[in-house]
């Protein structure tokens, strides 16, 4: 009896070791590429371009790449027509504005559909759900032509304005969430003289901060990483280029200056990484919420 127990335990330990081994393997698979670009970003460019690879800068550490990346006015700007700090700033404001306004508007819509009575409520909601099914690429060309007709192309407006109207997906998730709030709460607020909008802003929103944060973060990541739309809409107007577009252009316009290109990679990864590390809980919540499976 005792022996059997022992065997069981050693088998469990064996399984655990295997589990940790596999988990460590996956961890390495995720981390090593980042390590590689980080370590290379602090090498001299001639070492990066040499055919032998060392896991540590063999010919000394160089911050040349980073120096060029963070300065707003260097020789790099002549090649790429803009600078990394400017592109970063463009990414930030072109992401933050549609994210914040969009979430606020989607929230209002979700709140109205969940808690208020008005004509066509059901129809509006079904229409929004139906729009979620339509792939955006159908309108790639026609949207461009329409924006071009009103003179918005070669600029950031087409990247921002549509987002200000909220998104069907977020309306859906907010509705789910607000449906869970007790009716008594919103009724009481109205008896106290708050308008519908006031109830949303003063009562419903403060109670749903985590949801707002989660969905905002996901939306922000989406905007930050947007590539196809900035690529077609910003055209050759380098003044508004986002980080993604600038980085992509660097590959052909600043060819083989890999210390600079890799430093730019690190610089564009780092802000999101830091944001993620501090707000993980909300990310995870947002993901499980937006899959509609939980939350």
């Amino acid at each position: 009896m005792k022996n059997k127990h022992k065997r069981c335990r050693s088998a469990r330990v064996g399984t655990l070791i295997l589990l940790y081994f596999l988990l460590a393997l996956v961890t390495l698979a995720v981390i090593v590429p980042f390590y590689l670009i980080f370590i290379s970003s602090i090498k001299h460019n001639y070492e990066i371009l040499s055919s032998t690879f060392y896991w540590w800068p063999k010919y000394g550490i160089s911050f040349e790449g980073y120096k060029k990346v963070v300065s707003a006015n260097s020789e790099l700007s002549l090649y790429i027509g803009t600078s990394i700090p400017l592109s970063f700033w463009n990414t930030v404001w072109q992401s933050v504005i549609p994210t914040l306004v969009g979430i606020f508007v989607s929230g209002a819509s979700g709140y109205a559909v969940a808690k208020l009575k008005f004509p066509c409520r059901g129809a509006i909601f079904s229409l929004l759900i139906a729009t979620m099914m339509i792939p955006g690429t159908i309108t790639l060309v026609s949207s461009y032509l329409l924006f071009d007709t009103v003179g918005w192309t070669n600029g950031p407006l087409p990247l921002i304005v549509p987002g200000l109207f909220g998104s069907a997906g977020n309306v859906f998730f907010m509705r789910q969430y607000f449906s869970g709030l007790p009716d008594e709460l919103t009724e009481a607020a109205k008896l106290d003289g708050l308008s519908n909008f006031g109830t949303y802003v003063r009562i419903a929103m403060p109670l749903s901060v985590p949801v707002f944060v989660s969905l905002s973060l996901l939306s922000f990541i989406g905007h930050y990483n947007a590539y196809l739309n900035p690529l077609i809409y910003l055209g050759d107007n380098t003044k508004y280029y986002t980080l993604q577009i600038t980085l992509k252009n660097m590959m052909s316009l600043y060819k083989n200056q890999w210390d600079v290109i890799l430093s730019t990679c690190i610089v564009s990864i780092l802000p999101l990484l830091v944001l993620y590390l501090f707000t993980q809980k909300f990310f995870i919540k947002g993901i499980s919420m937006s899959s509609g499976l939980k939350g």
Binding site: F118, P119, I124, G166, V171, N196
Partner: peptide
């Protein structure tokens, strides 16, 4: 009803 509709409509 009007305010509800207004809030729901932007999307």
């Amino acid at each position: 009803a009007a305010s509800g509709l207004l809030m729901a409509l932007p999307p």
